[in-house]
Computed example of a mutant assay.
Amino acid sequence: MSTDAQQDSRDGRDGSGNQDFQDWQRWHEERIVAVAAPHGPLSLTGTHWLSDYPDGRIPAVPGQWRTGRDEVVLTGAPEDGLTVDGKPLAGEAGLTADRGPIGSSRVARGERRLVLLSREGQWAVREFDPQSPARHDFRTIDATPYDARWSLEGTFRPYDTARTVRVANADGRERGLGLGGEIAFTLDGTEHTLQAAVEPDGSLWAVFADATSGNSSYRFRFLRPGAPDEDGRVKVDFNRALLPPCAFADHFICPFPPPGNTLTAAVAAGERNRIDA
């Protein structure tokens, strides 16, 4: 085999692997753009739990935010400069948790977006500011180039009933993490499993750590395989291991890996760390 062919084989770019490499490169570039977007994760400057502000007044966030039974009531005056659904707020507005893209959140103040979050019955207001220092300091995402070795065939084994485990979160609080089954795969002759949640569209989501975590990569990462086929087969592609949102802003509440999701192997693939200028 020629030197060029050997290099292509190592990079996963030989023959049929060429398309896989190109797809990964496109995915990586799109991830950088999405992270650096005006209301991407780098723009999060605060997560304010309303239980910490009994009077509904959050420093540096305009308006009064009061929790109701199934909603939050926001009271604003013209001088607050708030808009709800694109219209200036002068009075009250009933709000529920935002589900869509940050840029389409109901409440705004100029370029800033004020996003309602609900977790386990607790409400929070998140502030996304395109002028955040983190967004302006960001340069790129350090990621290992595509290697076919890390694209594995796996099997999803659903649980008979969904489970919830309590895990620590990045903000120091413990919360429930829903799990729908486990993904089994073989790496270097050894079988491993990852507990995973099942998303509404059938795709999977796993929070994992490995022997590189906290050393050559961030302390934990996300893996988002597609939906398994009817036989439970699923692609486990660590080339697309993701940095969690809390790698980009300290105000995210990312869950840590559940028990059993710390791999003994070193997964030298996927996104590794954020790089700033």
Score class of each variant (00 low, 15 high):
8 D>H: 10
180 G>L: 00
122 Q>I: 11
194 L>V: 06
71 E>M: 02
83 T>D: 14
86 G>S: 05
4 D>A: 08
23 D>C: 14
39 H>T: 00
222 F>G: 02
48 H>L: 08
55 D>I: 13
206 A>M: 08
40 G>N: 05
22 Q>H: 15
276 D>W: 06
217 S>H: 06
144 T>Y: 09
237 D>V: 12
128 F>R: 03
68 G>V: 03
150 W>V: 07
32 I>T: 04
209 A>G: 13
92 E>Q: 15
210 D>S: 01
8 D>K: 07
164 T>K: 06
265 A>T: 14
197 A>M: 09
227 A>F: 07
269 A>M: 04
198 V>S: 04
247 A>G: 09
152 L>N: 08
242 L>Y: 02
254 C>Y: 01
143 A>C: 09
130 P>L: 10
242 L>E: 12
243 L>G: 01
222 F>M: 07
119 R>L: 10
113 R>L: 12
40 G>C: 05
92 E>I: 13
145 P>I: 11
122 Q>N: 03
56 G>W: 08
207 V>S: 01
214 G>N: 08
52 D>H: 12
266 A>Y: 14
107 V>W: 08
236 V>T: 04
163 R>I: 09
80 D>L: 06
81 G>H: 10
185 F>E: 12
47 T>M: 10
272 R>Q: 14
186 T>V: 08
191 E>N: 13
236 V>C: 04
96 T>E: 15
131 Q>I: 00
45 T>W: 08
253 I>C: 00
49 W>R: 12
7 Q>W: 14
3 T>L: 06
86 G>P: 04
97 A>P: 10
108 A>C: 01
260 G>C: 05
226 G>C: 03
218 Y>L: 03
248 F>A: 04
20 D>W: 07
248 F>M: 10
127 E>H: 00
213 S>I: 09
176 G>A: 05
146 Y>G: 03
190 T>R: 14
45 T>Y: 07
183 I>P: 03
182 E>S: 11
217 S>T: 15
39 H>L: 00
11 D>F: 00
104 S>E: 15
63 G>A: 09
83 T>L: 12
235 K>T: 00
134 A>V: 08
150 W>Y: 11
106 R>K: 09
230 E>G: 06
142 D>R: 08
31 R>H: 12
185 F>L: 01
194 L>Q: 05
94 G>P: 03
162 A>M: 02
4 D>S: 07
156 F>W: 02
90 A>H: 13
214 G>F: 13
144 T>H: 07
221 R>Q: 10
224 R>M: 00
